[in-house]
């Protein structure tokens, strides 16, 4: 039986009609809403490629049933910033050339956003810990850590 699921994505209300209420949010974002920035990595909530903000908290959405986000606010990488108006994190990732294949970066930027929203001045160890649920296989870790530090400083008003 088709049901309508309503929530907001990047500030805009959306409604999707689905037969299977267990459809993972990731599939809804990618296949129903055309938002490809949230990546599929494992489908097992292990790698962090699919991390989005749900009511402000970083959550993996590859196995999160769509019914569980009804009425909630979802923010994806597309809602963090754009090339025209990059979020300081995205600008810092570009400045630090923080990435190799880049497949993990959507989830990492979202996880980092959640960290900085709650902790504007994290230590390097706190950043690393916050990103431990995100796997980077290419080995861009140190650049990513530097980029998050840089963005944090930027967001605090340019103090280093």
């Amino acid at each position: 039986m088709t049901q309508k699921f309503e929530f907001t994505v990047n500030g805009k209300p959306v409604g999707v009609d689905l037969d299977n209420e267990e459809t993972p949010l990731l599939n809804v974002l990618r296949n129903n809403l055309g938002l490809m920035g949230t990546r599929f990595g494992c489908g097992l909530e292990q790698c962090g490629c699919c991390t989005v903000l749900i009511d402000g908290r970083p959550e993996k959405c590859c196995a999160k049933p769509v019914w569980s986000v009804a009425g909630k606010s979802v923010v994806t990488i597309e809602g963090i910033g754009t090339p025209e108006r990059p979020h300081p994190l995205q600008q810092a990732f570009i400045d630090e050339q923080a990435g190799q294949c880049g497949y993990c970066l959507s989830g990492i930027v979202v996880s980092a956003k959640a960290l900085l929203d709650n902790n504007p001045a994290p230590t390097r160890a706190e950043i690393a810990q916050a990103l431990d649920d995100n796997i980077c296989r290419c080995g861009s870790h140190n650049r990513i850590l530097r980029a998050v530090e840089k963005a944090a400083a930027q967001l605090r008003g340019g103090q280093q």
């Binding site: 990618r30 938002l35 490809m36 920035g37 949230t38 990546r39 599929f40 994806t76 990488i77 597309e78 910033g81 754009t82 090339p83 990059p86 995205q90 990732f93 570009i94 050339q97 990435g99 294949c101 880049g102 497949y103 970066l105 959507s106 930027v109």
Partner: peptide, 21 residues
């Protein structure tokens, strides 16, 4: 010279650039 990677911005903004997309 250390030119910025041409492919990185699309990956940082979540563009549909992978084969999976």
């Amino acid at each position: 010279t250390s030119s910025a990677r041409l492919d990185l911005p699309a990956k940082i903004f979540g563009d549909a650039i992978f084969i999976h997309d």
